[in-house]
Write a protein that binds this DNA or RNA. Structure first.
Lengths: 171, 171
DNA sequence: CCAAACCATAACCTTAACGTTAACGGCAAG
DNA sequence: CTTGCCGTTAACGTTAAGGTTATGGTTTGG
């Protein structure tokens, strides 16, 4: 259980309220700049959980998760922010679904919501796997070249050991 | 008269001379625009095999291979052109090595060149595998969520018992 | 020889993804 | 209250990765 991570200082008494972070703490925590976070909001990749009295952005745990997700897609997978937007539509919908899920008592509906969420995850995974597949193709192509070179090396070694200092006649 | 990369006299006895392509054919073949190809040259990602009398760029088979390699890295792997430049330095060296290799008769030197080439390939593969690893981490994280949802679904399917599940631990 | 198609360089334009700066408000401490 | 830091919006700057002319040479079929 890891939900009290990050915020420790100014908000002890009101216990049940989820800790809302301001943009700098979020930036430091997630590893993005404040500008980047605002930019992502501008692009519609997220909308912060709330605004303070003075219209400060306030982020909750889901926001952090979403930002990490975006960063992962951007850095690790090399997706464009537009592509990420596609994947996030699924992610956003998933979050909304989760809320509906909590407020629903009908097992049939709950089951349908879960079914939907699984579908969205599967699409994300499919997209990632596709990328992995292309990378693996490149790896195996490179390894093919490697094998070729190893063969060459073996040939040379075979001719090298018996007569190291003689000129090699063509095979 | 055009200057060109060395066509090795050791290559093939009665060689059908490799056809040198002009930029448009290359572009159509590889799937890039002429502008992009010139831009890559400008960045130092390749230098065409030769120039014609009227200074037309002329590309050989190695150039095409390189361009496909670049495109693969860019599209499939999402590397930046700068990162690709790093990987290509190895690739460039490999090509140069191959030329020296052809014009060398000394088995010891040939062996060393092959050894070197293998090392370069291994670094490329390492870089790709690193990326694959990060993508796979994302996949398995997503699949973890999937499993969680499946568990929920199974609980629902196992009867309409409203056990008060207060909060989802790991969305 | 000549026109059509191709190529070269150079310069400027565009889009994505931010960085930077300006001008201003909120708020806790001294 | 004012100092200092954090926040806001708005606007302009920058870099990467090309697209788009403009101007002029090259190649090649007729």
């Amino acid at each position: 259980m890891w939900y009290s991570r990050g915020v420790s200082h100014l908000d002890a008494p009101t216990a049940t309220v989820a800790p809302l972070l301001r943009i700098q703490e979020v930036a430091a925590d997630v590893g993005l700049t404040t500008r980047t976070i605002r930019y992502y909001e501008e692009l519609g990749l997220l909308n912060p959980a709330a605004r303070s009295e003075g219209s400060y952005r306030l982020f909750d745990v889901d926001d952090l998760e979403r930002l990490r997700f975006i960063k992962g897609l951007r850095d690790d997978a090399g997706f464009s922010l537009t592509e990420i937007g596609q994947l996030l539509e699924d992610e956003v919908a998933r979050t909304r679904i989760r809320e509906r899920f909590r407020s629903s008592a009908d097992p049939v509906e709950r089951r349908a919501l879960i079914e939907d969420a699984i579908g969205r995850i599967d699409r994300q995974v499919g997209s990632l796997r596709q990328k992995i597949g292309r990378l693996e193709a490149m790896v195996s192509e490179a390894e093919g070249r490697r094998v070729h070179l190893e063969t060459h090396r073996a040939e040379i070694d075979a001719g090298l050991e018996p007569a190291p200092h003689t000129h090699e006649p063509r095979p």
